[in-house]
Design a protein around this nucleic acid. Structure first.
Lengths: 112, 112
DNA sequence: ACCATAGGTAACCATTTGGTCACATGTCAA
DNA sequence: TTGACATGTGACCAAATGGTTACCTATGGT
């Protein structure tokens, strides 16, 4: 796997868990939150579970952190998502593709 | 989890595996391929491994199938990807967001 | 100095996942 | 109808994942 492919893979894998997506959403709502604060978004899960998810997000470069006093603040970094969207998802989601898909679906429906 | 959230989750999880992304790319290149044909895209993996991945893609509704004679043809369905992109990824990848992100990154760099 | 608070480490566990193998089914063609 | 070919099923296995608990470190307030 090339470098960007490996990076993309980490991003895809990081996005594959609903808790992690919730955490990203939380940071989208309010950036720079502490672990404690983020735990509120994952009720019924211990702080350690949340921390593990945050580690995954951090190593996929989707969140960056900064220690302030005794708390660790988490910042959203959407750039990897944008890159993945640009060079992979866009290929499937572009209007051109969409038109083709609609046409194909129509044809399949007729011949079915 | 609501219905669409569960669907989105299946799509995210399906996209989390590199082999499955390769299979989608293969169908993007040439639609309507058989299992055999798709196996060529995953060298070093048995037909059964490929079949399992195809099942995952199918149950996430990313590929649809049609039996023709003794072979099963696979068709790409990008719609779920488009939906996920529209209602989740777009939020992070829109130009507006991108501008905010760049600004934030700049500020953080200055204060660091 | 002290204690409460915020976070970190490591061991551990259950489940899911990615993958294989052995075998079964269905279909075409001679 | 027999054999080759394409796909399906189920058992099975190793590794990764998601999560917990017990304990440790560091910081801030009083």
């Amino acid at each position: 796997m090339s470098g960007t492919e490996r990076d993309d893979d980490a991003v895809f894998k990081a996005l594959a868990d609903p808790t992690r997506r919730v955490l990203l959403d939380a940071l989208f709502d309010r950036d720079g939150q502490s672990v404690q604060s983020l735990c509120e978004r994952a009720p019924g899960m211990t702080r350690f579970g949340v921390m593990k998810h945050l580690e995954v997000l951090e190593s996929a470069n989707l969140v960056t952190t900064r220690k302030v006093g005794r708390q660790k603040l988490h910042f959203l970094n959407p750039v990897p998502i944008q890159q993945v969207a640009d060079r992979w998802i866009g290929k499937y989601a572009q209007p051109f593709t969409r038109a083709l898909v609609d046409l194909q679906a129509d044809l399949e429906h007729r011949t079915a």
